[in-house]
Nucleic acid binder design. Structure first.
Lengths: 246, 246
DNA sequence: TCACAAGAGAGAGCACCGCTCTCGTTTCGC
DNA sequence: GCGAAACGAGAGCGGTGCTCTCTCTTGTGA
């Protein structure tokens, strides 16, 4: 058991390569059906037909329909996390304005592939219990938000007039791992006070998109893009980020 | 065609009464299954079994599974609207604090019957297009929110330091029917400026409950009840309502 | 090199679903 | 009282997730 921990002797046999290829075709076909018809209509049999194989054969690759959905969920968290991180990284505006850009980008992404947004931020699939594999990709969005708040605080543009609530017991210690605090006990109080504000930003983002996508602005909002901006900017104001519109 | 518009001669025949009774049993059974297993698992055949009748017989009362869901959706909008209206009506606190009470009550209601919340504020049922019957009950929540904002403005407790965005084109004229303005052209500008703030309150409420109920606070929030309060209060601060916590 | 085990695919089958059609039976209105 | 409408039951269609068995291919260790 000395060097056994390394990869066991170039295991890419023909069968392995074939398996990997079928697996990726399977995921691609599933993604295509997901994005055209939604997760509720995602049928394992239909995916099998798309691939020209028997439905029973699919079970050689995926243990159940729910497991297939889980793979898509992880992919999707990573996709939207990537969108948010890219905008946050490349924007040259201040933290407040950058947050608006991030929110707009996520909204755009959600409108382009609504069923993917639903998959992760809508009603959870019945009987589905998120395995730990989904936690890491899911937390990327929180990382972006907390990062922006830290930046704003450092730059002195985090409006101190915003409400300041005691963070004690309101945020789980693990949440600060994103900000680099591996030991929960060492999180400074001011960092906690800032981090808890991320909840309102996250909620306003997911909430605003959900509300629009799920039809609750029917006969309420006219120009939905501008409506979204106002919603995000107003919530951000409560957090202490001053966003300028128009 | 003079007095024909009235009810046609006391139509409560034995058959009519039986039909109404079966119909209400049907809805009750469907509601029970909905609240115990969720809308995705709501099967018309199962409901039929609960009632001891053949599945085909159910179609004498309801044209399709989606139509049955629509009936439940309307009931549910009315139930949650009732919760919000009751709290708003009976609270003797100021508008800001009343809003917190409303939000807490709605959250409590959602936690008590999560599948009902999902039914109306989660992912829409596939292939489902909200008929107009659902609009009136759905709009009750907006009515409560706009009413509270009007109260706050009248009482002079609507913080003028909150961001003020041009409402032009951002709110559909019909939305003001709730506030008593039947003709959209007559809505004063200051009313529109206030009404558009309702979006952030609505979004923060639905968003905060969704985020909690759908599992996105896993390893983020510790005390979820207090976390909810902070989220709502922070968003409300952006709107201009000062909520006091603790 | 060759045998054996593991992997892969196909097909039948089970229990469930939404929905339709047909068939008797009951009830209502003229 | 009689014809029509409403009602309930049952069979059946095509679809679903998933399991089991069977055959064939492929990789590996002796």
């Amino acid at each position: 058991m000395t060097e056994q921990t390394a990869a066991p002797r170039v295991p890419t046999t023909a069968r392995d390569r074939a398996r990997a290829e079928v697996m990726s075709e399977l995921l691609a076909a599933a993604r295509a059906r997901l994005e055209s018809e939604g997760s509720a209509a995602l049928s394992l049999r239909a995916v099998a037909r798309d691939l020209g194989m028997a439905s029973s054969a699919v079970y050689r690759y995926v243990p159940s329909r729910d497991a297939l959905l889980t793979l898509l969920i992880i992919e999707t968290y990573d996709a939207v996390g990537e969108v948010a991180e890219t905008v946050a990284r490349t924007s040259d505006a201040g933290p407040a304005q950058t947050w608006l850009e991030v929110a707009r980008a996520v909204r755009r992404w959600a409108l382009d592939q609504p069923y993917s947004f639903e998959l992760i931020y809508g009603t959870p699939v019945r009987g589905y219990r998120a395995p730990d594999d989904t936690v890491r990709p899911a937390v990327r969005m929180w990382g972006v938000i907390i990062g922006l708040l830290m930046d704003a605080d450092r730059d002195g543009v985090l409006d101190p007039a915003g409400p300041d609530f005691d963070p004690a017991g309101r945020m789980a210690p693990e949440a600060f791992a994103t900000a680099g605090y591996t030991d929960p006990a060492t999180v400074p109080d001011d960092v906690a006070r800032i981090a808890i504000r991320s909840a309102t930003l996250f909620t306003s983002l997911v909430g605003a998109i959900s509300v629009e996508l799920f039809g609750h602005l029917h006969r309420v909002a006219e120009d939905r893009s501008r409506f979204f901006d106002v919603t995000i900017a107003t919530a951000a104001a409560g957090v202490g980020l001053r966003i300028t519109l128009d």
